[in-house]
Nucleic acid binder design. Sequence first.
DNA 1: TTCCTTAATGATAAATATTATCATTACATA
DNA 2: TATGTAATGATAATATTTATCATTAAGGAA
Lengths: 132, 132
Amino acid sequence: MIKNKIKGLKMTPQRLAILAYLEGNIDHPSADDIYKAVLKKFPTMSFATVYNTLESLKNRGSVSELTIDPDKKRFDPNPDPHNHLICNKCRKILDIHIDYELRVPYEKKQGFEITGNHIKFYGICPKCRRGK
Amino acid sequence: MIKNKIKGLKMTPQRLAILAYLEGNIDHPSADDIYKAVLKKFPTMSFATVYNTLESLKNRGSVSELTIDPDKKRFDPNPDPHNHLICNKCRKILDIHIDYELRVPYEKKQGFEITGNHIKFYGICPKCRRGK
DNA sequence: TTCCTTAATGATAAATATTATCATTACATA
DNA sequence: TATGTAATGATAATATTTATCATTAAGGAA
């Protein structure tokens, strides 16, 4: 529910529009994608507002920033830990929900306190497979 | 051995200097890190040459590009598949060599042909743990 | 409901990272 | 040693993200 994602922040129309676009979105859009999409319904939207909003939502844990695309940051409206499937050709990113037990033996930890992990699976998506 | 990493490419002093810096380097440097380091011993080095060389080495499979740091690309002179340990505070990146059997059941593959994976472990490094 | 404080917006500039262009240079092989 | 071509270096262009700041408006208080 969108209201929970924004609790504690001012509920501006711009933020609601951004959240509405993100809600249920599985495309892992970039800031530019979000800007372009929201602009259609909200012609006064500024780029700065997109970044500001994403920053706020990130800090609240309502969205997560993905470091998957080498060229730009992408955003995931699902902040629960999950993994991703990436097409090496078209760069499409899909969620993949499998939990693995990734135990790290003490002698491999190198003194780190490990708090989480993220798995990227690389491959070729169905569309790109057919296209070749 | 450096010569193998460059086989098929012209062996220029600039490239040798870059390779020498990368050889055995475990810091996962950015293009800028590499540029700054090589510049000390090679004052005429151009930024473009660093990028060009990294591109060539990447295409040959001699180095790999890491999508781990959200702000910039980093490079790993070890092209063999391995995983990474990342400090959430200081952003330091360490190699972690553990092989996991990450089986993906057919119904989770979403039509992808999976060719590889990469695991990022997040945590706090020893130095940052002490610093707090 | 109206007022008021303060956070948010929008316009824009600045910073950072990467890619592209191209004349000149120099590697490598014939 | 001469020569074709790939590589270099200088620089411009592009892309992404962050910073600045005057103006606006959300939302709690009166």
